[in-house]
């Protein structure tokens, strides 16, 4: 049995409080907010729309472009405005996390732009961003096979836990009088219906068995998340 205790008292398979809402950016064709605790993302979708310049157009399918960025004041130490190597990479993996569910061949030569902005960050922001973007794409009426859900699974100390925080990401244990990092971050995006992963990253150190355990927990958690996403979309009715 694992002995690690989560600082906020959560069970290993418990996420922080999740909030989800669609229609948060009026001007966009679709939009949504998604948060894990205080990690909060908003996403806006524009398109499918005309793509310029013409040489970017693909006659076989619609281009999907995702842009991820953080508010400078979403983190403790101010983040300079504008893209960084980190945000460029996250934008790229977010695009491939979302594209498998979209019917992009329905709009040849066009483009769908997805803008994800992190309002406040306490780890798992790329996952909150993917969840918000998936909702925003559905809200924009884009044909898709299912919603994509994402969560960061961690191996913290000796436990596999769901939806890790910044504090857990920085978890250290004492060994031979030295502090060593004992946290592994494994963000993943799951297509629950197809039972496939469309995003998988890992920073840290795990065995193959631990990774399998992490993916199992990821799948289980994403099943819960997708229900919350569905409810958020169904709520449009009450407005």
């Amino acid at each position: 049995m694992a002995t690690y205790k989560r600082p906020d008292g959560r069970e290993y398979d418990e996420t922080r409080k999740i909030e989800a809402k669609v229609g948060v950016v009026k001007r966009a064709d679709g939009s949504a907010m998604f948060s894990f605790g205080s990690s909060r993302a908003i996403a806006a979708v524009y398109g499918p729309r005309q793509l310029h310049p013409q040489h970017l157009q693909n006659p076989e399918k619609c281009l999907l472009r995702c842009y991820y960025d953080m508010l400078p004041f979403s983190v403790a130490e101010r983040k300079r405005p504008g893209p960084s190597r980190r945000s460029t990479e996250i934008s790229y993996v977010t695009t491939s996390a979302l594209s498998p569910v979209l019917k992009l061949e329905a709009f040849p030569n066009a483009v769908i732009d997805v803008y994800i902005l992190i309002i406040e960050a306490d780890a798992s922001t790329r996952c909150a961003g993917i969840n918000a973007a998936s909702l925003a794409l559905a809200h924009a009426g884009v044909p898709m096979t299912e919603l994509v859900s994402a969560v960061s699974i961690g191996k913290i100390g000796d436990a596999i836990v769901a939806d890790i925080t910044k504090e857990e990401e920085d978890y250290k244990i004492k060994k031979d009088g030295k502090e060593i990092k004992a946290a592994t971050d494994i963000p993943m995006a799951i297509l629950s219906r197809a039972n496939k992963l469309s995003l998988l990253q890992l920073d840290g150190k795990v065995t193959l068995d631990e990774l399998k355990e992490a993916i199992a927990l990821g799948k289980k958690t994403c099943k819960k998340i997708v229900e919350i996403q569905k409810q958020a979309l169904k709520k449009v009715k009450e407005e």
């Binding site: 001007r27 806006a44 524009y46 400078p72 405005p81 803008y115 902005l117």
Partner: peptide
């Protein structure tokens, strides 16, 4: 600093 991110309007550009 002001950032006119295209999230807010189709008129803004990256």
């Amino acid at each position: 600093t002001v950032e006119l991110w295209p999230l807010a309007s189709e008129k803004f550009e990256m």
